[in-house]
Nucleic acid binder design. Structure first.
Lengths: 207, 207
DNA sequence: GTTATTTTCACATCTTTATGCTATACCCCA
DNA sequence: TGGGGTATAGCATAAAGATGTGAAAATAAC
């Protein structure tokens, strides 16, 4: 049995959600609130704590994203799925970073919504198609301006720098003299067109 | 109409896939091969080029992941969805980085597989539940060991470091003396428990 | 088998960073 | 009204990094 909590400020939508989801045998609605604050206030009085929370983003007071931190703090075992009209990458990333396990568009048909929520219990992370595409794009690194390729050894060196090591430590790790490390780094800087560790790291050549 | 290509080395599975998917009115199967090499070789002779490719990962010769680069080069307009028994985060990330738009587990029921593939045309990125969870986790940075918060000014300084600037340049940007920058950096290093720019950047405090 | 690239190392020099100690001015607040 | 915390600044020193020049050995490429 999934103990479901719902946070949604618009009464019409909230009632539609509770009306449908709470009627499903898989769910037990334990709490439905119009704001994160209201939700948090009600939690201590409850017998069954929610294990799955469906939260809007555009809320009065704390936004759904801002609310994630206190929610997860108060209910560490609960998983939160965002339900929002917003589909922009920024809100999606912010939500996921703040701990949401899924992100669904508000126009998701109720039966689909139900399926998606059940996926969470199965270890899934439901996302509406367009949302998923944002997330995928994040991995597909923006085409870099075609830099000279690094030799394997140079990549070893870069890895060392990316790990925050000093020249000496890199030398130790690769069993080289510090002068050799210097040599390689000079080459790397030339190829990647930077001239300090900081710049190299700032440009994020990590993969 | 979706022009579908399939790459799968096991004849049984390949036939099951083609048998089911090609019978669907939404798809037109244009090519089915047992390896990336075979697939690539066949492309030039075709009238209708595939717009959607379903590719296995464990293939003889080029793996499905290695095959992504040449596939995308030869068929830039095609989208590739991986279909694999492997569910490890490494292969998932490698696939997405190499340009796959979706990742499905091999035990996905055929009707579900069909739905997922149709999602791609709608701009979606289908992922099996467990796969999606890997991806989500990537965003949920491992809980940092509760660091002392930085003051606004200190954050300015950190931003400068993250942009790859030297002390002098940070000072110029913020209209400070270089010694002031040093002072702030000292505080930052203490709070974040690092002792070099490289370490700070390596730990990735950027957001 | 010669050529080119990569990998390795050395020494010198100058710049940037890291770190310690000190000090003034400002603001909040108890 | 005096004590935290923040922001500013200076000086000094040691460590780490950046850059130039040069060169030998190992590998790969042709």
């Amino acid at each position: 049995m999934i103990y479901l909590g719902i946070i949604e400020d618009q009464p019409t939508i909230r009632e539609a959600l509770t009306g449908y989801l709470c009627a499903q045998p898989e769910f037990s609605c334990v709490l439905s609130a119009a704001s994160v604050e209201e939700f948090l206030a009600a939690v201590p009085t409850m017998i069954h704590r929610p294990t799955l929370i469906l939260s809007d983003i555009g809320l009065p007071g704390l936004s759904g994203i801002e609310g994630l931190a206190p929610l997860r703090h108060l209910l560490p075992q609960a998983e939160v799925v965002m339900l929002s009209v917003y589909t922009d990458a920024q809100r999606v990333f912010d939500s996921l970073r703040a701990g949401a396990v899924g992100y669904l568009e508000k126009d998701t048909p109720l039966p689909v919504l139900k399926d998606n929520l059940l996926q969470v219990a199965a270890g899934g992370s439901p996302m509406s198609p367009g949302i998923a595409r944002h997330v995928i794009r994040y991995f597909q690194s923006p085409p870099r301006p075609a830099l000279e390729p690094l030799t394997p050894r140079e990549q070893d060196i870069v890895r060392g720098i990316e790990d925050g090591l000093s020249y000496q430590r890199i030398a130790d790790r690769l069993f080289l003299s510090i002068d050799t490390v210097r040599s390689h780094i000079r080459q790397v800087y030339r190829k990647l067109q930077v001239n300090s560790k900081a710049e190299l790291l700032a440009r994020g050549y990590r993969r």
